[in-house]
Design a protein around this nucleic acid. Structure first.
Lengths: 128, 128
DNA sequence: ACTAATAGATGGCTTATACATATAGATGCT
DNA sequence: AGCATCTATATGTATAAGCCATCTATTAGT
């Protein structure tokens, strides 16, 4: 059932990605420069190893962040194309990003422990 | 609303932990030694920085892993106390653990990228 | 008999994210 | 004018992971 060869046929049989990275990545990107959703998607696709969230996730996450006071938005109707909702970080958003960074460092430490134990168990020497 | 000071009042306002680590940690622990649920909980609590999943998560995850053929279980009624369902890894479980390790290395790399960008943005020098 | 420890299991809930689809303005082609 | 396409935002639905609370059962101690 969980054959490695066949790709996900809908079951839980894939080594699921770790969740909880969309929010901090959006906050960090906004810390660099205010931007609208579409722009953020392209930025994450370019710079973040091509791992942008889908539009649904992205826009909904942005609205949630705004509801929580971590970002604020204004409409920008200048320039070509449809109106953009431009987001920027609030002070609270910056603080939150710092908190996320702490949490993420902890997660990374946990992954390091896991990988160390794993490699010890299977006596693997990895270059990276 | 998302004040750092007050702890979770039920909203999404906490720097959410990264999910997706229970399965691989169970598989790795079982790779070291076959064990029953309670034993696994204690092992994860001891060795894994005190981050064991709650019983509900643990036992349900084990059953799911068995349904997927990654572990198999037998009842052990010897010794004191109630019967234990003792789990051990299958060959497929070992393969899956390897796949998880690859995925987790990828996740760690992503976290490293995030933290590098974060530290660059805020010009922080960290000792770790 | 009552309590506690060990051991396993179920029900319900939230969160994060994905996939699919809908809406709408702007631009360009025919 | 009609129509496709790109840009941009949004909603509907589904799902997996994990938490909290609760329940059962066995064994041991008082």
């Amino acid at each position: 059932m969980c054959d490695q060869g066949q790709s996900g046929t809908g079951s839980r049989c894939n080594t699921g990605r770790m969740r909880g990275s969309v929010q901090p990545r959006l906050l960090l990107q906004l810390a660099r420069k205010p931007a609208h959703g579409y722009e953020l998607m392209e930025a994450l696709e370019d710079g973040d190893a091509g791992q942008a969230p889908d539009p649904g996730t992205l826009y909904r996450t942005l609205r949630a962040l705004e509801e929580d006071g971590l970002v604020r938005s204004t409409w920008n109707t200048e320039g070509a194309g449809p109106a953009r909702r431009v987001y920027e970080l609030t002070d609270q958003g910056v603080e939150f990003l710092h908190a996320w960074a702490v949490s993420i460092r902890g997660t990374r430490a946990q992954l390091d422990r896991f990988l160390a134990e794993y490699e010890q168990q299977f006596q693997i020497k990895t270059g990276g």
